[in-house]
Amino acid sequence: MSVLNISNVSKVFPGGTVAVDNFSLEVADGELVCLLGPSGSGKSTLLRMVGGFEEPSSGLITIDGEDITHLPAEKRPTGMVFQSHALWTHMNVFKNLAFGLKLRRLPADEIKRRVEGVLELVGLGGYGTRHVTQLSGGQQQRVALARSLVLEPKILLLDEPFASLDQHLRERLREEVRDIQQRLKITTLFVTHGQDEALSMADRVVVMRDGKIEQADRPDVVYREPRTPFVAGFIGTMNLLEGTVANGVFNRAGFSFPLPVADGPAILAIRPEALDLAAVSENGQAKVHRVTDYGTHGLVDLELPDATRLKASVAHPDMFKTGQSVALTPRAIAAYRDHALIHKS
C-alpha cells in the first residue's frame, strides 16, 4: 500500500515567482492521478518536488506517512519517467535498466531476472543487448518506463512522457501504460497538458492554474461539470459567452436564454454538442460562418451579431451553409459568476 500525501506545499523561485501555491492533494493506493494544466501552471514543478528534484519552499510531502520532503532524489521511493526519455546513450537497454539495481548491490542473477521480467512487461523482451539509440521513440519511452518500474518504486511519476511522440504512438502507449499501471496497482502521478491523455487515463484529474487546484474530480465529472470557467474552457471545446442576467434572462448580443440566477454579469458555458441549431429564413440569433464536415459529424462555426463566435456540433452538416440564419437552443448549460459555478441545467 502506497499513499502519497502532499500538504500545503508551495514553491517560490528566486525572484518571487510562485510556481506552486499552498497545494494539497492525496493520491490513494494504486490510483492514477493526472495533473493537467497549461504551461506555467506549476504541474511539473509539483511533480519534481515529489521526485526530489526541487525543494519545496514550504509544506509537507509524505509517502505512506513517511516524511520525504527534504530527502534527496536518490533516497526517495519514487520512480520518474522523463519527457525526453533521459536514457543513457552510452549504455545498452540492459545496462540502462540494471544500473539502479547494481547500485543497490543486487546479485547478478537477480538483476538479470528482474530486467528481463520488466522488459517482457513493456513488450521489449529480447531487446536487452540493443543500443538505446537504435530504438524508435516509442521503444525508448518504454525503456524509460521499464527503468523506473524495475526498481519497484512506491510512487511512479510520469512527466509528460508522450509529449515527444506522434499522435498514433501516443494513443497506443497511453493504453499500454494504463494497462501496466493497473496490473501492478502502482500509485501514479502523471503530468500532462493533453486533456485527451488526462481524460482517458486518469482515475482522477487535477486541473491546475497558477500553482493552485482549480478542480480535482473524476474525468467525466471534470468534463461534464466544470466548476470554474477556466476548467470549462480548458477541458474540451466549450462556448463561453460573457453577458448579463436581468430578470432571470441571460443576454448577449441578441442571444438570450432563461437563467434563474440573481441579476448581474455571468459567463454561460455551452458544449458544442449541447447546442442545437435550427435553420430559419430570417431573424435567427446567429449566422453560419463556416461548416466543417469531419465525416462522423460536422462542426458549424456561428457568428452572433456582435461577431462573437460559437461552435455547434451537428449530425448532418450538409443541412447548413455559410451565411444561413439559425436559431440556437442550448440543451445543457453551466453559468459562472466570480469564477464559481452558479447554475447548471
Binding site: G51, A73, M80, F82, S84, A86, F99, L103
Partner: peptide, 27 residues
C-alpha cells in the same frame, strides 16, 4: 550531458560521485 540524464541517474539511486563516474565521465 542533459540535465534529465543526470536527474534520471539520481532517480534510480546514484549519488553525486556515482553520477560523475557512471554518467558524466563516459559522456
Amino acid at each position: 550531458v542533459a540535465n534529465q540524464a543526470i536527474e534520471a541517474a539520481r532517480d534510480v539511486g546514484a549519488n553525486k560521485l556515482q553520477v560523475l563516474w557512471h554518467i558524466i565521465l563516459p559522456r
